[in-house]
Nucleic acid binder design. Sequence first.
DNA 1: TATTGTTATACTCTATAACTATA
DNA 2: TATAGTTATAGAGTATAACAATA
Lengths: 155, 155
Amino acid sequence: MSRAPRASTTDAGVDTRYLESLLGYNCRRAALAIITKFLERMAVFGLRPVEFSVLTLVKDNPGITSRQICDALGILSPNLVRIISQLDERALLERQPHASDRRAIGLKLTQKGARTMREAQAAATELEASVLDRISAAEYETLVQLLQKIYLPPR
Amino acid sequence: MSRAPRASTTDAGVDTRYLESLLGYNCRRAALAIITKFLERMAVFGLRPVEFSVLTLVKDNPGITSRQICDALGILSPNLVRIISQLDERALLERQPHASDRRAIGLKLTQKGARTMREAQAAATELEASVLDRISAAEYETLVQLLQKIYLPPR
DNA sequence: TATTGTTATACTCTATAACTATA
DNA sequence: TATAGTTATAGAGTATAACAATA
């Protein structure tokens, strides 16, 4: 694990080499750069990253519960309540009684929600493609796979 | 840019494939996983990620100003004031009049700060090494380089 | 007129405890 | 006794406006 790579020094002559050798620092800076563009592009749909993620899970898993969303996204249930309520008020999803468990609530997209997500995911895919200005398609695939090895439980 | 990789479905049978195809999502999840370990490991030094980053910059750039730190880390000056004050109160760094600009304040580590950072950076390097349980040394190097291509201005 | 450091402040995000209704 | 969803609330993190001292 070599501790001193290439980027000697940043803009104003500040030595940032040590920080740039740390994986957590680089992940966070890269995530921030990408999310900033995501925020700008998704503003037209009124969707922040969490809302986009929640609606994606509801789309691909009709009848999913809040608990399952929390587990999948790593967020806490009290913090999901308002998000779901607001998406419901905006008529992007609807809550329906769960088949077997009367404590739980199944979620599914409304027609409006489905339409919005078709457009939003198309925009997200465009954004993904735009990183190919900086890295090759092969590097992109490698990057995604390596990131998943970092945070996904080993299979 | 292929849109449906390997990890079919997560723990509770939830389909997360689309999210896992997005770079921003993967970066954020990986960053979160790494930062969680960082928080645990650095608790003994009482250092959060920002404080670790600030002290690192002060260590490698004695006399650095708040403005330069803000630029390098991408944080806003009003939010740095308290961080610097607290590090000063803890006697980890000290403020000294700037040589040429009487508006600015130069920062440098105290002896205690230097000692703390020697230990903290050793711990950080250990943490870096621990990701080699999940990826190879070559993959590690590749990952860091690709992440920097994402967020650093092209050179 | 612009910049460094600062205060005050607001808004979002994240985290914990505790309640209800079901299981 | 445990779980799904909820409420209330506290603490981080992040954002903008405005000021004093200096450039």
